[in-house]
Nucleic acid binder design. Structure first.
Lengths: 136, 136
DNA sequence: GGAAATCGGACAAAAGAGGTCCTTTAACTC
DNA sequence: GAGTTAAAGGACCTCTTTTGTCCGATTTCC
């Protein structure tokens, strides 16, 4: 369940992108500058986001990345799965991938009880929510 | 929130201890053997458990560790805090210690909503529950 | 005294996180 | 076409954490 800086940077970078006028095309340099993030690392992260259809790349001079969907449609879970890998909610909260179907962890069935709520939280929070929060 | 193998080994080692007749004194070697865990590493973990009053050490030949409380009184949260450090529930689920009071993470208030449930889960689960599960 | 056990610190291997750099490719401008 | 700017992608690097091992010291039983 533990999220890495990659996810944090992804959300912040996307947030910076969402604050621009809709449809804007912004290079990574601009996004990294806006959020004070390491440029090269953020570039790597946006490659993942592009591969997963969250963002669209346009190469060449004066170009960059743009959002594919409206901020209201970009869920936090979608970003997490793009960055950390798919099947994220299949991981056990407590021991991550080590807790599988064949070898459930000690807390597995208890974890199963709150998992739906957590999933709903991550699917119910969108980029628009985060942008509103960081702007306020 | 991510738990390490130390906690897993602690719970499994304690579980093995709880399966013995009440008040038994068992050396680490015996516990490690029962759960197939690395002996030296488990010894380190039990030192922490002893320091935190979960287990009592008796040194010398033919001795070892014994439970201080009944298995029903040993909560999972207690073991976690003994092993991973105190204030465990203060950590944000998503970004751990990086999410503090002054610099809350992007999901902080949403996390606050489910935190009590998680805490209740970890406090409500005892060594007795785990022992029953692993025995069944 | 010898054996068996914990105590505690130093050390080390492996994995993961976080990040840089360089080359290639694409697209625009002159 | 040449130059410029930007993403694509891979190789590499460093630091931290995890997951241990090992050894000497101490305690206690026989």
């Amino acid at each position: 369940m533990r999220l890495t800086k990659e996810t944090e940077y992804a959300l912040r970078g996307l947030s910076a992108l969402a604050r621009q006028p809709q449809g804007s095309v912004v290079p990574v340099t601009g996004l990294a500058g806006a959020e004070d993030l390491p440029r090269s690392f953020l570039a790597k992260i946006f490659q993942k986001l592009a591969r997963n259809g969250i963002v669209q790349a346009s190469r060449g001079a004066g170009r960059g990345y743009s959002l594919v969907m409206a901020p209201e449609e970009v869920t936090v879970l979608g970003v997490i799965e793009a960055v950390e890998g798919s099947g994220y909610m299949d991981h056990c909260l407590f021991w991550g991938g080590h807790c599988g179907g064949s070898t459930p962890c000690l807390l597995h069935d208890r974890w199963a009880n709150i998992k739906p709520q957590l999933q709903e939280l991550l699917e119910g929070t969108t980029l628009a929510d985060l942008t509103a929060a960081s702007a306020g």
